[in-house]
Design a protein around this nucleic acid. Structure first.
Length: 577
RNA sequence: CGGGGCGUAGCUCAGCUUGGCUAGAGCGCUUGGUUCGGGACUAAGAGGUCGCAGGUUCGAAUCCUGUCGCCCCGACCA
């Protein structure tokens, strides 16, 4: 391709609304253009990179016998109502009506659709296992799209779904996928660490996320200092054993004191007012499970300096949500001033984190507006009945004071979630009736796994982690062009050589861009660095006179001189390895 | 959804507080000249319903109301 014939709108300045490096570079290098919040045009350079990423993904998917299909983005809402996700997904789901008034959605993911497909055609164990995938546009009406391509409303995703007649078979495919993911990110040249993630209904080792470590990321990864283990913060568990209620301190002489704390609901405010440490406090939060009629209250307690981990609560109590404030108040919870002993008077499931349980003479809410209590102790101030039913469980986020499973220190870092592999179980096949017959004519729900990669996020990860002050540095595998030819002046011998090399590289399937613009050399060099093509061939009069061209790798400081008749071979070698 | 900020040329922004000449600058763009190995210089130009609607006023980019759009922080840490 010739620069003058394509569209590469580079710019010296980044728009003010771009905050993170990758976003700035994508705009400056002319990869994408925003058309609406979280919705982008893909320009030639961006699109080329995207295609290369998808090509890598395709190759690795095909290599493990996953077969590509294509499902529609426009889906009937009915299908989603059958699994309940029409409601569970909430506002994140784009909803619309067709001309007949039929409710439709734009697919944010395709479990329903693919399960429906398999239900229609797979009925025997002999047809299993099977893995189908697609690379397709997903739609999610994000509350707050942000940071360029990091969180968008329309994006590319490779989503694969596997179907099995046994958990062992699911395990095999899961591991194949896991390995394929490792290869994909390696080939794309970006760092990605697999971490344990929330595992859902199957439990155990059923879910991994692949995280690209970088500051721009929205996820928090916890890993062992010796890299022996890593997990999503949601998932990371305490390393010390969970005690039973009897481990609570015995403080027979302690007396529960009420103390006035006007307008001090937050932990920090109370600590300041009473001049105590947050470790001396018990934080109590109220959750609600089930619907308004059948649901129950859940009172969760952690030490004041700890954060409640809602995913862990869900693991114990099933689907829960933080209680609606008005509803909780109506039920008698003094939101802002709730203490654990509220369970003495209001019927609720009490879940206590071990560190909260071991806190003696704690300060907590008094269950009265503008009042707290001090010297709270579990054994004295909970009724016998409540003590007997209380659940002691790990329900907080780990902190730097915790240890990895092997006892080493924990390190916390941010990262971008690039992909996710997940053992689904029979959630969707149950809901939609996707069953197969085994060899004894017994009917079973198909066992499923699902595996996603956000292709756009690979691009974000590459720019975030590999760029330098001058611009992008594409890994060869996903570079929009392998080589850029920069004639100092596109004229005379330089022009002849540029055209000839263009032809020869193209014939070898090497993607080449000739900067044929009538620009000063400085402009061309700056732009070449900015758009980050891995190899640059400079054609200048002086070197051409000696039968040589200058070859510079974007990631290296100094160029090398290569004779004209060797350059094609030389570059081909660099591109292929 | 809550809070904050911003909408003026393709891009980055000034002007607005205190209403008043033909609405400005830099970058980019067009044409000419000089330049030509790391974002050149110069001359002449093109380009704007000041987001939109309404209001106040003799007069609105500027004040008021509404509305749309965009960005940032937060979203359950009581």
């Amino acid at each position: 391709m010739y620069w003058s014939r394509t569209l590469i709108p580079t710019s010296r300045e980044a728009p003010t609304d771009a905050d993170i490096l990758s976003h700035k570079l994508m705009i400056r290098a002319g990869l994408i253009r925003r058309i609406s919040a979280g919705v982008y045009d893909w320009l030639p350079l961006g699109w080329r990179a995207m295609q290369k990423i998808n090509a890598v993904i395709r190759e690795e998917m095909n290599a493990i016998n996953a077969e590509e299909i294509h499902m529609p983005a426009l889906l009937p809402a009915e299908l989603w109502k059958q699994t309940g996700r029409y409601f569970d997904y909430g506002a994140l789901l784009f909803k619309l009506k067709d001309r007949k008034g039929t409710e439709m959605i734009l697919g944010p993911t395709h479990e329903e659709c693919v399960t429906e497909l398999v239900k229609a055609y797979v009925s025997s164990h002999k047809q299993l296992p099977i893995t189908l995938y697609q690379i397709q546009t997903k739609f999610r009406d994000e509350a707050r799209p942000r940071n360029g391509l990091l969180r968008v409303r329309e994006f590319f995703m490779k989503d694969a779904y596997s179907f099995h007649s046994s958990l062992e078979s699911l395990d095999r495919t899961y591991h194949d996928m896991y390995d394929a993911y490792v290869k994909i990110f390696q080939r794309c040249g970006i760092p990605a660490i697999p971490v344990e993630a929330e595992s859902g209904p199957i439990g155990g080792d059923a879910s991994h996320e692949f995280i690209c470590p970088c500051e721009a990321g929205e996820d928090i990864v916890v890993r062992a200092a010796d890299n022996s283990w890593a997990a999503n913060l949601e998932r990371a568990g305490r390393s010390t054993p969970v005690p039973t209620f009897s481990a609570a301190p015995q403080m027979p002489e302690a007396k529960l004191d009420r103390i006035q704390t006007p307008d001090a609901a937050a932990i920090d405010a109370v600590c300041k007012l009473l001049n105590i440490q947050s470790t001396q406090m018990i934080k109590t939060m109220v959750f609600r499970s089930g619907d308004a009629k059948t649901g129950k209250w859940i009172v969760a307690c952690v030490r004041g300096d700890h954060e409640i981990n809602e995913a862990k609560i869900r693991r114990i109590a099933g689907p829960v949500e933080l209680a609606d404030e008005a509803a909780a108040r109506a039920a008698g919870f003094v939101i802002g001033y709730v203490g654990p002993h509220v369970a003495n008077t209001i019927e609720a499931e009490l879940i206590i984190d071990p560190d909260a349980l071991l806190t003696a003479n704690a300060t907590s809410g008094a269950n009265e507006l503008h009042w707290h209590v001090t010297n709270f102790n579990w054994k004295q101030h909970l009724s016998a009945d409540v003590q007997a039913k209380a659940i002691i469980a790990d329900i907080r986020n780990v902190t730097a004071e915790d240890k990895a499973p092997n006892g080493t220190d924990l390190i916390f870092s941010k990262g971008i979630e690039l992909g996710h592999v997940f053992k689904l179980g029979t959630k969707y096949s149950d809901a939609l009736g996707a069953v197969y017959s085994d060899d004894k004519q017994q009917s079973h729900s198909v066992i499923m796994g699902c595996y996603g990669i956000g292709s756009g996020r690979i691009l974000v990860g590459a720019l975030e982690t590999l760029s330098d002050a001058d611009g992008i540095r594409w890994p060869m595998a996903i570079a929009p062009f392998h080589v850029i030819i920069t004639p100092i002046k596109y004229d005379g011998q330089a022009r002849e050589v540029a055209d000839r090399l263009h032809k020869e590289f193209s014939a070898r399937q090497i993607d080449v861009l000739v900067d044929d613009r009538d620009q000063r050399p400085g402009v061309k060099f700056k732009d070449a660095d900015l758009i980050g093509i891995p190899l640059r061939i400079v054609l200048g009069d002086k070197s051409l006179a000696t039968g040589q061209v200058e070859l510079k790798e974007r990631s290296k400081k100094d160029p090398e001189m290569v004779s004209i008749d060797k350059i094609v071979e030389h570059v081909t070698k660099l591109v292929r390895t």
